[in-house]
Computed example of a mutant assay.
Amino acid sequence: MEVVDILTELLKFKSITPDDDGAMNYIDMFMDGFEAEFLEINGVKNLILTKKFGDGAHLCFAGHIDVVPAGVGWESDPFEPIQKDGYIYARGSQDMKSGVAAFLCACKDASDFKGTLSIILTSDEEGDGIYGTLEALKFLEQKGSLPDFAVVAEPTCTAKFGDAIKVGRRGSINGVINIKGRQGHAAYPEKCVNPAHQLASVFSDFAGYNLDSGSKYFKESKIVITDIRGGMEVTNVTPANVKIMFNVRNSDLSDYEDVKRYTEYVFHGFDYELSLKQGSKPFLTDENSKIVSLMRQSIEKISGVSPELSTSGGTSDARYFAQFGVPVVEFGVINDRIHAINERVCIKEVEDLYLVFKELIENFY
């Protein structure tokens, strides 16, 4: 079967996190010749497929079969893929069943690989992501079977197919500041401690502040305010407290302690509580790594485009490979409609993505 046929079948599964809707079983049957190991943890299904050709390096392809809910306003059924004007429309077509279809077909067609090819699939990337790829890698570590290199087929391109490889990701730190005051009548502000006024006095020093200037592959670590709330939505009572929520996508130049220190500096003297949580840490694959070099070569040969090395965007399961010391890159189709209404993918891009992965496998040695 051709890659577009496989993609079309995958798109029919209503695999909303963490339900795979039977997609894993379908993939297992399609990938005959590969040893299959199923891991189900707290309702999350994971599938590891492995085929050893020789004693050389272990190359792993990874991705997720789950999708976000479709939402309303689609021009067609989001789980009945349709082809129109060179595109396939369906939920998950870009993020990321196109990537999954491409590496499934490329691995299935491999015949002269000198090492081990494997595939890790999860049904929980769009959710919390803690019982998916991470658990699969723990399982492989216990067996002594961690891959030497990995490719995650997330949609990475921006304007043209082939224009970007992700070689790392920023970390993510979430924060909540609760400024405490003393509620009172708005007509007697001298009898109140107004936390909104306190916040106003320092807000410009905090909101949008860059903790560093960025580095070669990372943008600056910026404090981004995501929510502010306080009071009772009346005009004659001052608030008892004001809560500010924020996020920092941190580079390799700033960390949890830097965020904590700067927050404490700005809000020094206030009566407040601070909660910080590190969601993920930044990682970067060396640009001279074999996987980066070979991926660039494969993309240039198939697309004629020289890809930029990028670390933009949010988090992905690539971070878990980095956590286990596995050099990892991300490459996939153009990302312009992920999680959106009428999500679609260009058929030519899917076909070319398959060829890129096929080229990578064939020329890995």
Rank of each mutant, 00 (worst) to 15 (best):
K281C: 05
G269M: 07
R337Q: 03
Q278L: 10
A240P: 03
T17D: 02
L104P: 08
N342H: 05
E75T: 13
E37C: 07
I347P: 06
M31Y: 01
Q278I: 02
E2K: 11
V224W: 07
V242R: 01
A70V: 12
T156E: 10
L140P: 00
L11Y: 05
E75L: 10
P327Q: 04
S201E: 09
S215K: 04
F79N: 08
D95C: 08
S280H: 12
G73I: 00
T315K: 08
Y87Q: 03
A200H: 13
F149T: 12
T285M: 01
Y217C: 07
D336Q: 04
D128G: 12
I119H: 04
G184D: 03
Y265F: 14
F246T: 00
A70G: 12
D109M: 02
L7E: 00
K138T: 10
K301F: 12
E287N: 03
L7H: 01
I228Y: 07
I299E: 13
W74D: 01
S316W: 13
G181A: 05
P189V: 05
S289A: 12
P239S: 04
Y365M: 08
R91D: 03
K301Q: 15
E40S: 11
A62L: 03
G86K: 05
N363E: 11
L137C: 09
F283Y: 14
E233L: 13
S145E: 15
K114V: 12
A23E: 02
V333A: 02
Y209M: 11
Y354M: 09
E126A: 06
I177R: 04
S204A: 14
K160F: 07
K358L: 00
F267P: 03
S201Q: 02
T122D: 08
A102Q: 01
L39W: 06
T235I: 14
K277S: 15
V326I: 15
Q183H: 10
S221A: 08
G314A: 09
Y320I: 07
Q297I: 14
G162C: 12
E343R: 03
A62N: 11
D124N: 15
K51C: 02
Q198V: 09
S93A: 08
L59F: 00
V259W: 02
T238W: 06
G214Y: 07
L276V: 06
S201K: 10
L199Q: 03
Q198T: 12
A23Y: 11
V3C: 05
A153N: 00
D95P: 03
N247G: 05
T158R: 14
K281A: 09
L104M: 13
S15P: 05
K348R: 09
G92T: 00
E37T: 14
V266K: 03
Y256Q: 02
G132K: 01
L121G: 10
R319K: 10
V242N: 04
F324E: 10
V152N: 04
E141T: 02
I302E: 11
T156G: 15
R261D: 14
F149I: 01
N174A: 10
H58Y: 14
Y26F: 15
E308T: 09
V193Y: 11
N178S: 14
